[in-house]
Amino acid sequence: MQNHNLPTDELKNFGIINDDLTFSKKLSPDDIEKFLRGYTIVADNDKNRATFQLTENSTKLKVIFLERGMSLSKILASSKEKVQYTDIKKLSSHNPLIEKKAFIFDMETGKVVEFDFITNAKELTAIIADKKEPEELNRYKNELQKLKVFLQDKAKKFPEIAKEISKNLNIVSREIDSVNTIAADQKHISKVGNSEIQLNVNDHGMYEDANRSREEQEDPSEECEKTRGFKR
């Protein structure tokens, strides 16, 4: 192990390293490299989630225990039918935390992909919009609004971290605005499509086929990035 200042006892206790000080085989070389650079390891077990991050020049291990609103197995099964939204909560008297997630089944890979409402905001909105399903877009908007209310309440209760919260609040507000614009566009396209049905079938010159594409991506912050591949 390169860094002898690592909190080895804690790392052993959580199964991140072995007794011989080698890292768990559940972690890839890339996972280990990122972890040593301060990225977060996430471990899921049914409804429970734990996050691990090295702090203070890798001498301390920051551990956060969270509870998922639905069991992971149920989420994975249900996501094959439709997008699943769930909260991961850490409720305490000081600085309560909610991470809102979306689980989407990727038909091309046959895998379920997890998206965070903050770190994957633009990408998630684009994926939901591409489905072109008004009901799903409305479900997504409702989840965004729930998260916005939580962040607003948290900012009022904890003014000392209001500035930090405002960054996430701005992201959520931006995506709500995007969803409203997308919904309006889709409604307009639908109306145009309905009106075209009334056109004279012989008047081919009056019909236009519009194709739109959208590609957006946002880099997650180092604090929030999730390292894949580590399951307890």
Results as ranks from 00 to 15, higher is better:
104 I>A: 01
107 M>I: 14
108 E>Q: 15
108 E>I: 15
110 G>Q: 06
110 G>L: 11
111 K>L: 09
111 K>P: 01
111 K>C: 08
113 V>Y: 01
113 V>D: 00
113 V>Q: 00
113 V>W: 02
114 E>A: 11
115 F>E: 01
117 F>Q: 00
117 F>I: 01
119 T>I: 08
120 N>F: 02
120 N>D: 15
124 L>R: 00
124 L>D: 01
127 I>S: 00
128 I>K: 03
128 I>F: 01
128 I>D: 00
129 A>Q: 06
129 A>F: 08
130 D>I: 04
131 K>P: 02
131 K>S: 08
131 K>F: 06
131 K>D: 06
131 K>V: 05
132 K>H: 09
133 E>M: 09
134 P>L: 06
135 E>S: 15
135 E>P: 02
136 E>W: 04
136 E>F: 03
136 E>C: 03
137 L>S: 06
139 R>Q: 07
139 R>V: 00
139 R>H: 10
140 Y>V: 05
141 K>G: 04
142 N>D: 13
142 N>Y: 07
142 N>S: 12
142 N>I: 09
143 E>S: 08
143 E>T: 05
145 Q>I: 13
145 Q>D: 10
147 L>E: 04
148 K>S: 06
148 K>T: 04
149 V>R: 13
150 F>L: 00
151 L>K: 03
152 Q>T: 13
152 Q>P: 03
153 D>A: 04
153 D>E: 14
154 K>S: 03
154 K>W: 01
155 A>K: 13
155 A>G: 10
155 A>Y: 01
155 A>L: 09
156 K>Y: 01
156 K>H: 05
157 K>Y: 05
159 P>V: 05
161 I>S: 07
162 A>S: 15
162 A>H: 01
163 K>A: 04
163 K>D: 00
164 E>C: 00
166 S>R: 11
167 K>M: 08
168 N>S: 15
169 L>F: 10
169 L>K: 10
170 N>S: 09
171 I>D: 00
171 I>H: 02
172 V>I: 15
172 V>W: 02
173 S>F: 01
175 E>V: 08
177 D>S: 08
177 D>Y: 05
178 S>M: 05
179 V>E: 07
182 I>D: 09
182 I>V: 14
184 A>N: 14
184 A>S: 10
184 A>T: 09
185 D>G: 13
186 Q>I: 11
188 H>W: 11
188 H>V: 12
188 H>Q: 12
190 S>G: 14
190 S>R: 11
191 K>R: 11
191 K>H: 07
191 K>D: 12
192 V>Q: 12
193 G>F: 06
196 E>T: 10
197 I>W: 08
198 Q>T: 13
198 Q>V: 07
199 L>I: 10
199 L>A: 09
199 L>D: 09
201 V>K: 14
202 N>Y: 14
202 N>W: 11
202 N>R: 08
203 D>G: 04
203 D>M: 06
204 H>N: 09
204 H>Y: 11
204 H>C: 04
205 G>W: 04
208 E>F: 09
208 E>C: 03
209 D>K: 06
